[in-house]
Design a binder for these strands. Structure first.
Lengths: 197, 197
DNA sequence: ACCTGAACACCGTTCAAGT
DNA sequence: ACCTGAACACCGTTCAAGT
C-alpha cells in the first residue's frame, strides 16, 4: 500500500502500518521492526505513525490484541464436537498450533518478551482467554467422567504448556515443515494419554 | 564489577561484560540490552566491548552457547536413574524446567528470536543437544520395552515440546511461583501417560 | 593488548508548524 | 484531521589514535 509522494492516507494509514509491521515481523522478526522504517516504506514521514499509535509499544500491543482476538475466535468456532470432550480438546489444540503456523507474525508479537517494568501489574493475562477455552473443555470432560479428575486448572496447564511448546517450535521453524496431520497426532496422543481417564 | 576511572580491566572485561549483560537481561529483558549501557555501567568506553565481541550478536551468541553448555551438563549429570527409563525421563524434564527457572537470563537469550537472515543456514541446531538427551532416554526405554514403540524422534518431540512450553511459561512468569514439586508432577503425568506403554 | 574519542548512520520521541 | 521537518537523546559500529 505505497502512496504517492505527498498524498494522504485518508484514514487507511493505521491499517497500512499494522499490515506493514506484520510483514516485517514475518520476514525479519520483531527485533527488526522500526517505526521509522515502516513510515519510510509507506511513503509518509516518520512522525505520521504517532497520529495512530502513542508509541512503538502501542503498535505492538494493538497487534498482540488483534492476535489474541483472532485466536479466541478460532478456538470458540468449533462447537461441532461439543458433545465429545476428547475430540473437542484435540481440535482445540490443533487449532491453537495451526494458528501459530498460519499467523506467525501475530504469534511472535503476542509472545514476544513482555515489558518487565518492575512496577507494572500483570496485564490482565490475555493468554487466559485461550487458556480458559482449554480449561472449560476439560471441565466438561470431567463432568462427563471421561477425563481424569483433579483441578481443571492443573490439567489445562499441562495441555496449554504442550500446545504452546509445539507452537513455539513451529514458529521458530525448529520442526521443519511438519504436517498438520503429524501435529494433530501428537496432540491426540497427549490428550488420550494424560487427560482422558 | 565497577572499575576505577582510567583503570584497566586486565582481562576481566569479557567476564564483566557477560555478567552485566545477564543482569540486564534478567531484570529488563533481552530487548533492553545495550552494549553502550553495559560499557557505561562498567566504566569503560563504549568501544571497549568490541575488543571481546565482534558485535552485539556475538555477545548474545556467547551467552546462548554458555547456556546450552550448562543445560547439557545439567542433563547429563543424573545417571543415577540410568536403569529406570521412566524415572530418568521425569528427572530430565524436571532438570530442564528447573534450568529455565534458575537461569532465566540464559534461557531467554537461548530462545530469543533467532536472526532470520534468509540466507543463513540453520545454526547447527543447538537445541538438539538437550533434545538428544531426551531422545536417547526414550530410546533406552523402548529397548527395555517399558515405553511406547514408534520413532524415538517423534516421542521425544512431544516431550521436548512439553518441557519447553513449561519452561517458556515459567520464564515469562505466567505460572506465578509454582513449586518445583508441582512441575515434577506435571512432567510425571506426561511421561506416564504418553511415553510409558 | 587494551583502552579512548570522534564520527556516521540509524532509532524512538517531541515540538512547532503546515494543509 | 492528518501530515511535515527540525531537533534531541539514544544505539550499533567503525576509524584513527593513545598507553
Amino acid at each position: 500500500v505505497r502512496k504517492k509522494r505527498g498524498a494522504y492516507h485518508h484514514g487507511q494509514l493505521r491499517t497500512a502500518i499494522v499490515d506493514d509491521a506484520l510483514a516485517i515481523v514475518a520476514t525479519d522478526g520483531v527485533r527488526r521492526l522500526s517505526l521509522r522504517d515502516v513510515a519510510r516504506r509507506l511513503g509518509v514521514s516518520h512522525q505520521a505513525p504517532y497520529r495512530h499509535f502513542a508509541d512503538k509499544r502501542a503498535l505492538l500491543d494493538a497487534i498482540a490484541r488483534d492476535g489474541f482476538a483472532m485466536l479466541t475466535a478460532a478456538l470458540v468456532a468449533p462447537t461441532e464436537h461439543a458433545g465429545d470432550p476428547t475430540a473437542r480438546l484435540i481440535e482445540l489444540g490443533s487449532v491453537y498450533v495451526e494458528f501459530a503456523r498460519s499467523h506467525t507474525a501475530h504469534y511472535r508479537v503476542m509472545f514476544a518478551e513482555v515489558d518487565t517494568e518492575s512496577g507494572s501489574p500483570p496485564p490482565e493475562d490475555e493468554t487466559s482467554s485461550a487458556f480458559h477455552q482449554l480449561a472449560s473443555a476439560i471441565a466438561e470432560g470431567q463432568r462427563q467422567r471421561v477425563f481424569v479428575s483433579g483441578p481443571a486448572r492443573d490439567v489445562a496447564l499441562a495441555s496449554f504448556a504442550f500446545v504452546h511448546g509445539l507452537a513455539m517450535l513451529v514458529v521458530d521453524g525448529k520442526l521443519g515443515d511438519i504436517s498438520a496431520g503429524a501435529i494433530e497426532k501428537l496432540i491426540e496422543r497427549h490428550v488420550v494419554g494424560t487427560v482422558r481417564r
